[in-house]
Design a protein around this nucleic acid. Structure first.
Lengths: 354, 354
DNA sequence: GTGAAAGCGCTAACAC
DNA sequence: GTGTTAGCGCTTTCAC
């Protein structure tokens, strides 16, 4: 069963007794230019032959493609999985396709992806990078690459055409931390992978700000940030949280409240808490970030900061599409959505002193 | 900042003082045909100009593309997210890209995707469909589309060139059910979305087989399979499980053991169990399927049937690549991996009678 | 209202 | 060893 030769626009034209241009006109929304009868003949021929236009040829000719790139840390992390899903749905609705790239938070891999996407003729990508610097993509941006960064607040040194869409990570973590403080916690810990990314730094800042605002000495809080490794995969976040909790809770002055950089990490923390024979909420409170589907399913249901990922994904696609289809017309901008704290049952007042 | 004109192979050739063919030869692993000096000049020119070959042109010319399609129910489900991640990694390692499609278990959407992928010139796709019939893609398979189905055991009526890769769902659920029975459970329930897919049917069969083998009347078991809806999204699985648990446990003769069609569903079931004031394991045991990362993180850690998704994804890609690069050479085949039961803490003997 | 023709950037014979 | 050349399938002026 060998690959058969493809049907071309030529063959359709011939079958319909018209020229290729006429078929092309029909295909490209210029049906009004022809007689209804002609149009009908062509439609029939297309149908009969099962003709599908060759996109490579079209792209070569027009320089346009209906594909965008999506670079996420890892779709293995349910948060990114959900984001990818919603982005792809938004794209599908407008006839776009999405090429998936998992950077695993590896800057080199990210760079490589962007290059490859460019070679593919892709001129729009949603980058969930959160690398502090975008210098590695600047050359391509200057050549016309449209970039929407997600979950990475705009930085002063960013290319000016850049669009940033993100939840306000500082505010989010502020909310989370303040919630814990309000509950009476005084010994807090912040658990994260390496603080190399913009978003992690922002979340950390929200944590520290809240501490200061409450008059708590900054050094009253433990910070556990993934020890040695340069960068951490998003799937390993849970393992990291688990390890962090075990370590923090067996030290002296163990925290009564733990703020985790994201939900996967928080779930790992919860697991670690049980590992050392303690109970979440009852003994130590945990707050996450993202509000993945599993946060609500967990036992106890996780208190967390919600990222409205369907809306965020929809906005990201809309921005990107507008720019790809109409390059150089709108300046860069930044959308910072205020996140919402979802209080569930992983947080409670600290245990009273014995 | 307008899109600049792209650098072409012509310009590189000119800059290096050679012909385009020489550049092309270098690009396509035929460097040995030229003098080291020539080669060096060309490499320099490529570097200096920042030349990236235009893939659309290459694809148009050769008819080949280094992109494969991936159709999953939804990357929002952590199992599919992890699978997608591993497949993409395997692809990347061989210089392939992957186009992501979320079918949401909607047959029409799936059909549409396959058509689009074909138009994109993609000749290999990993289909995680589990629709009983593949008739909707048969025309394309006959034209040369290479298909690897995942998580869908081969069916008699399948196109003969088809490759199927799957865990043995019947055996898997048999293992899970037998485990529950061995623990002493006699009133079991099976919770699933609509049983429309091959994989769900297989899992159900494993459940029933185990029941029969143990001499338990089939009608001693409750089956809860997503009531009305035609098809269920994979993200809604959790919600469905939750609802199922609530309903099953408030009926008369509530089950003491629940077998869920997958982990997301199982996690929902656990949540539902708590909703009605019961405790997982202590009051009702739960087994899942997939072994997503969260299964181990959950409280209690979920007993489940493991799908080795990294290996499965790697095999799927390898099979597909071999066929795409060498079509029509190997006949269809079917790989059925025996899954493993991972006993954790969501299962325990049934509560003794009051 | 319809068609002829040029060419997008690349590869692969085939000359030299 | 290197260059010349002929398209891959499509869109889009520009004639008619």
């Amino acid at each position: 069963m060998d690959a058969m030769a493809e049907i071309t626009i030529q063959q359709v034209a011939q079958a319909a007794g018209v020229s290729p241009s006429t078929v092309s006109n029909l295909l490209n929304g210029r049906a009004h230019r022809m007689l209804p009868a002609t149009r009908h003949r062509v439609e029939k021929a297309i149908e009969r032959l099962g003709y599908r236009p060759n996109r490579a040829a079209r792209q070569l000719r027009t320089g346009r493609t209906q594909t965008i790139g999506l670079v996420v840390p890892s779709v293995g992390n349910p948060f990114w999985g959900a984001f990818a899903r919603h982005l792809e749905s938004a794209a599908l609705a407008e006839g776009y396709h999405v090429l998936l790239c998992n950077s695993e938070r590896n800057p080199e891999r990210e760079r490589h992806y962007i290059d490859e996407l460019w070679s593919d003729g892709i001129r729009g990508v949603v980058l969930c990078s959160s690398l502090p610097s975008l210098d590695h993509v600047r050359p391509l941006i200057e050549r016309g690459l449209q970039l929407v960064t997600f979950d990475r607040a705009a930085q002063a040194a960013d290319p000016e055409s850049l669009v940033s869409i993100s939840v306000d990570n500082v505010v989010g973590m502020h909310l989370a931390t303040t919630h814990l403080i309000g509950l009476g916690h005084r010994r807090l810990a912040f658990v994260s992978g390496a603080l190399g990314s913009v978003n992690r730094k922002d979340r950390y800042r929200g944590f520290v700000d809240a501490l200061e605002l409450a008059g708590l000495p900054a050094d009253s809080a433990a910070v556990w940030s993934g020890a040695s490794a340069e960068w951490f995969g998003d799937v390993e976040a849970a393992e990291l949280g688990r390890e962090a909790a075990r370590e923090l809770l067996s030290g002296d002055r163990p925290p009564t409240g733990i703020v985790a950089v994201n939900d996967m990490c928080a779930l790992g923390v919860c697991r670690g808490i049980r590992d050392v024979g303690l109970r979440v909420a009852h003994d130590v409170s945990v707050v996450g970030f993202d509000d993945i589907v599993l946060a609500d399913l967990y036992d106890p249901p996780l208190t967390t900061v919600r990222q409205p990922s369907p809306q965020l994904a929809t906005s990201a696609f809309a921005e990107l599409k507008a720019r790809v289809e109409n390059p150089g017309t709108t300046p860069g901008r930044s959308l910072l959505v205020r996140p919402e704290l979802v209080v569930r049952e992983s947080t409670a007042p600290p245990p009273s002193h014995p």
